[in-house]
Amino acid sequence: MKRLMIRADRSDDRDVRKGYITDGLEAGFSGFVLREGDECFEELGRMDAIYTHDNEFTDHSYISVSIDGPGSMEDVMSLAGKKKAVIVETTDWTMIPLENLIAAFDGSGTELYVSAKNSDDAKLYLTTMEKGVDGIIIDINDPTELSEFKRILSASPNEDLSEVTVVSVRRVEMGDRVCIDTCSMMSPGEGMLIGSYSNCLFLIQSESEDNGYVASRPFRVNAGAVHSYIEVPDGGTRYLSELRSGDDVLLCNGSGRTRVASIGRCKIEKRPLLMVTATDGMKEYSVILQNAETVKMVKKDGSESVTKLRPGDKILARIDTGGRHFGIPVDESISEI
């Protein structure tokens, strides 16, 4: 997970420094650079703070450096492996090959942070060479801009969803299924990507629609059997049985747009189950879900309850290639049946 920290130590006005912290906490940030003597600000909320004195970090395993040309860049690259973190500032990134810095620090044990004055630059720094830098130090004059930073930097990449065709829906034995209650409200068409195989995850809708039997619970996804995979932020997968309160999960809608939510509660209960099998024309994939009218799979034009699905129906899924090892994509052939 990339680290985002707000510089709240620049101003000589203590109230201004406090404003950066309160605005940052309200925007959802938890990392701050504070001025020595402002330790009491940690009482404003739980945070991860590092301190400066006369613009130098009091923890000497952190160092802030400025690059103004090729010579100073060589000096910065020589710090790889010698510090816990190096924070780089420059007035003109167009003359500094950021790719070279990322390559030099990769695998060195030293984290590379870059100071950003606006959210567009910060996004670029986090995605350069796909890997990006390890973190961003947000250094701005107006704390009201923090919400825009949070919006852009917390955005997750879109998913490429495909239509697959239902082959069969059949009852299987009673089993343990997981209900995921999040701290976020979801809309119809939005849910989580779940599947029995890591290379095909089906879009299971949240309980965001009223149905005449029970009230809607738009914070909940009845996700399926305990063995199932779920996609989590940063492109990994986990087993449903592993999830706990406070974990992050990925929400996705029918257009493939995603966002991150935190789990408030997971419930595992014995319930009657159905196995839905579908094909992309080349392979068959399946997912095991609770046999209940409230469990719905997302289609291009809405959703359909698993109890009403029929062979030939089209539903949305994310098809992947290769396999996974401990939830991480790997380029190898794996057969799952």
Rank of each mutant, 00 (worst) to 15 (best):
T258V: 05
A80Y: 08
I137M: 15
S30H: 13
G236S: 07
R17G: 11
S64M: 11
I319V: 14
R217G: 12
M282F: 12
I268R: 15
L101Q: 04
H53G: 00
L316I: 03
E99F: 00
V164M: 00
S168T: 12
T22M: 13
L79D: 10
D176H: 11
I180F: 10
G19E: 15
I337K: 06
L203H: 10
L274D: 01
G254D: 06
E26R: 12
F29C: 09
V221G: 06
R324F: 02
A223H: 06
I263A: 08
R171Q: 15
C40M: 00
E89A: 11
S228C: 13
G19A: 14
F57V: 04
G236F: 11
G195T: 12
F32A: 09
I96S: 03
K123V: 13
K84N: 09
N100I: 03
K270H: 10
P329F: 11
T258A: 02
S262F: 01
I50F: 09
L79G: 01
K296V: 01
R324M: 09
E36L: 13
L112D: 01
E336G: 00
A292R: 14
S286N: 13
R7E: 14
C179H: 06
A261G: 07
E111S: 13
Y20V: 02
D160Q: 10
K283T: 02
V33F: 00
R310V: 04
I140E: 05
G132F: 02
K82T: 14
L274H: 01
G69I: 00
Y113Q: 05
K18N: 07
H227W: 05
A85N: 05
V260K: 15
S333A: 14
G281L: 07
A278R: 02
S30Y: 02
R244V: 10
A27N: 11
Y62A: 03
F41Y: 13
V306P: 13
L34M: 12
A104H: 00
P218I: 05
A49L: 10
I328V: 15
E74M: 12
D15E: 15
G107W: 12
V65I: 12
I96Q: 03
S156G: 01
K131T: 11
D181L: 07
M186W: 07
L101G: 00
L243I: 02
A8P: 06
K84F: 11
V114F: 08
T110D: 07
E207D: 15
Y213V: 14
P97Q: 11
M129A: 15
L203V: 06
V232T: 13
Q290M: 12
D181S: 00
N211F: 10
Y62W: 13
L101N: 05
K296W: 04
M186R: 03
E74R: 12
N158F: 03
L124K: 11
T237L: 15
E39A: 10
H60Y: 04
Y197Q: 14
M1C: 08
L193P: 02
Y197P: 00
D301Y: 03
S156N: 04
G81N: 13
D234V: 09
R324D: 05
E26F: 00
S216Y: 04
S206V: 01
M95R: 15
S303H: 13
T91K: 15
G235Q: 04
M73Y: 03
T90R: 10
R3C: 08
F57K: 02
L309R: 06
S305D: 07
I334E: 11
Y197W: 07
I96Y: 01
A122V: 00
I263M: 08
V88E: 06
V88T: 01
E99M: 06
N291H: 14
S78T: 01
E99N: 11
I180K: 08
E148D: 15
